[in-house]
Design a protein around this nucleic acid. Structure first.
Lengths: 112, 112
DNA sequence: CTGCCGTACTACGACAGTCGTACTATGTCT
DNA sequence: AGACATAGTACGACTGTCGTAGTACGGCAG
């Protein structure tokens, strides 16, 4: 199986996370599972990459965090959830546009 | 105009350079011009990025360098040329395959 | 004859994002 | 009892890119 080098995805990890968050707030472990599922296991984000992305993105104002109970039991076990902000939406849309150009550009250097 | 973030291209600069070298040996300035032309100015590789790529790629065994006269005048003015190696060819082909997967993967996170 | 643009690089240090490794803690399944 | 899934945090290393700057030569305009 062809491994995807992280250097390519670098700069699109944020976009992937934001994409997941378009469907509503989520948290680290869940997001990582969704990325794996969506890509049929072709891309698995590293934990450290994911959590450091959260820190960066919250600083950038692309996401907001809040804590909530893990289940409805009210036993006090908390999880950190993230929600996409308006700025994050803007960023996401810009990234989608950028991707079109990038695809076009790189394709010119690919021969099969 | 949409600017391409270098983080995306990161990891494909080498591939671009190798693509140019498929048509025979070339040198820094010429390669940089060709990349600009091929992409209609949409991507312009920075000089420092280019030359540090050369160093890395030669160390990796993907390219080989040699010096030759700048013109036929024999006035002694030299240029450093680079030529793709067999290993470089292998790497290039692998990158092309990888690109297909990458494209597929990233596309799943793009919405228009 | 002077200064600027194009050519053709080299050097150096900073920075950002990813990764490896390791550690904590809880609950469930075997 | 031990493994595995969940849900993270901490820390330092590494790699590739970028900003800035400097060198050197030739040709052309003013």
């Amino acid at each position: 199986m062809v491994e995807i080098s992280s250097d390519v995805i670098r700069g699109y990890n944020d976009t992937m996370i934001l994409f997941i968050l378009l469907n509503g707030p989520s948290y680290g472990y869940e997001i990582s599972k969704q990325i794996r599922n969506i890509t049929d296991g072709k891309y698995v984000i590293k934990e450290t990459t994911l959590y450091s992305a959260f820190t960066r993105m919250e600083k950038n104002g692309h996401i907001e965090s809040f804590t909530a109970d893990q289940d409805g039991s009210g036993n006090g076990k908390k999880r950190t959830y993230y929600r996409i902000t308006d700025l994050g939406m803007q960023y996401y849309r810009a990234k989608c546009e950028e991707w079109d150009i990038t695809q076009e550009v790189v394709a010119k250097f690919i021969r099969h």
